[in-house]
Computed example of a mutant assay.
Amino acid sequence: MAQRFHDVESFPDELKGGVVAIGNFDGVHRGHQAVLARATEASQALGVSAVVLTFEPHPRTVFRPEQPVFRLTPAPMKAAILGQLGFDAVVEQPFDKAFSAQSAEEFVTAILCNQLGVRHVFTGYDFHFGKGREGNPDFLMKAGDRHGFDVTLIEQFQDENAEVVSSSRIRAALALGDVAEAAGLLGYRYAISSEVLHGKKLGRTLGYPTANMSLPPETTLLPGIYAVRFRKADGTVYDGVASFGRRPTVDDDNAALVLETVLFDFSGDLYGETCTVSFVSRLRGEEKFDGLDELVAQMKIDEAEARAVLGHLTPLSPLDRAMTFEPAG
């Protein structure tokens, strides 16, 4: 598990002098993983720490607060994924307009050299930093020469169709409910982690008790019914079917979006636990039924379809195995 540090000032001396991958890495998708894999390989070859320097909140949200970014991987999930990929630490540097106003040379000297003691930097080919984005790849390469650290720039990663893999492309797929497309770009099933909350407990009376979760309002996942994998806080995994939306049969059209998951073959109390839902397949859109009897009949159909989908599920990658399947051993 990667250690999390909420600013560079708290970064410990024993981890300094390592390989540092720099970027937002929202989603930690296959393109990001190409950068990150090169960084961990270099750290192992040098026998030094592997560190990610990222920024919180997402810079786009700072500059456009009226349009907050739909985060594919909020900070805790991002750190967990980076730990699975072999990183020792994640530095979540606070990002605000004052931080963005520092010069590129100040970023290099204060952050990379003085605080992190960087030995080798890995980042994307289009990384810009500092006031007015004056720090470009050429600037970073020359700064490395001046300060004594290496720089490796990674080119865009393209999928099997020669299209660039990007966080915005994944968000677009999720907005269409295409969780299979998103999984192909991420290299693992799209997942959310959240605390299980008390709901109206209507599902319990219908014979389908649900684990209710609240998602951020900027989430643009298409409402509907999904076949999912549900991971409890202790790592235990269950198959399930989840409804994301406004529950049109029992609530009005202005109700808040909620994620309700029915766990198969489970009984127990999950309230207060932070659990993870991995989205495998979208079964259908939301529907408004004439009554609860029709709703329950459809829920039985959804359960059968979800069990069929999940019964033959195989990992997409080692990362997907770690996130979506039973823990090894």
Score class of each variant (00 low, 15 high):
48 V>A: 13
53 L>T: 06
48 V>H: 11
181 E>Y: 06
316 L>S: 09
231 R>M: 11
310 L>D: 07
315 P>K: 07
211 A>C: 05
264 F>N: 05
88 D>A: 14
97 K>E: 15
113 C>K: 15
85 L>H: 07
211 A>Y: 06
127 F>K: 04
257 L>W: 10
295 L>C: 10
290 D>L: 08
78 K>P: 03
156 Q>P: 12
67 Q>E: 14
6 H>M: 03
153 L>N: 01
228 V>K: 03
204 R>T: 14
221 L>P: 05
224 G>M: 10
135 G>E: 03
287 E>A: 14
141 M>F: 03
102 Q>M: 14
277 V>F: 09
32 H>D: 00
17 G>D: 12
95 F>S: 08
158 Q>N: 11
183 A>V: 08
311 G>P: 10
289 F>W: 09
216 P>L: 10
328 A>H: 08
278 S>P: 04
155 E>Q: 15
212 N>F: 07
129 F>R: 10
169 R>C: 01
309 V>Y: 02
26 D>F: 04
128 H>G: 02
237 V>E: 06
256 A>F: 02
248 P>Q: 02
241 V>D: 04
15 L>R: 07
136 N>W: 05
282 R>W: 07
192 I>T: 13
141 M>Y: 00
328 A>S: 12
38 R>L: 14
72 L>S: 00
317 S>H: 09
130 G>D: 11
119 R>Q: 15
257 L>G: 14
239 D>T: 00
324 T>L: 09
303 E>L: 01
32 H>P: 01
204 R>D: 12
86 G>H: 10
226 Y>M: 07
272 G>W: 05
121 V>G: 03
41 E>F: 00
149 F>W: 08
78 K>M: 09
162 A>H: 15
23 G>Y: 08
311 G>M: 07
266 F>C: 05
142 K>Q: 15
100 S>D: 12
267 S>P: 01
204 R>M: 02
80 A>Q: 14
164 V>N: 09
85 L>V: 06
307 R>H: 08
213 M>I: 04
58 H>A: 06
37 A>L: 00
293 D>Q: 14
120 H>T: 04
8 V>P: 02
129 F>G: 11
67 Q>I: 00
137 P>Y: 09
93 Q>G: 07
260 E>L: 13
245 G>V: 10
167 S>G: 06
103 S>L: 07
282 R>E: 07
279 F>Q: 01
126 D>F: 13
197 L>G: 02
300 K>M: 12
5 F>H: 11
115 Q>W: 00
151 V>Q: 07
272 G>P: 02
218 E>S: 13
281 S>A: 12
130 G>A: 10
279 F>S: 01
264 F>V: 02
227 A>G: 00
16 K>N: 02
63 F>V: 15
188 Y>T: 04
153 L>F: 00
153 L>D: 01
39 A>K: 04
209 P>S: 11
178 D>W: 11
225 I>N: 02
255 A>Q: 08
107 F>L: 12
202 L>G: 01
203 G>A: 15
72 L>A: 00
154 I>P: 06
263 L>K: 08
298 Q>L: 03
130 G>M: 08
272 G>R: 02
260 E>D: 13
149 F>H: 11
181 E>D: 14
33 Q>W: 06
291 G>I: 03
96 D>Y: 01
112 L>V: 02
205 T>C: 02
328 A>C: 00
75 A>L: 09
107 F>V: 09
208 Y>M: 14
326 E>A: 15
75 A>M: 08
291 G>R: 08
67 Q>F: 09
160 E>P: 00
286 E>D: 15
253 D>P: 01
232 K>C: 12
228 V>P: 04
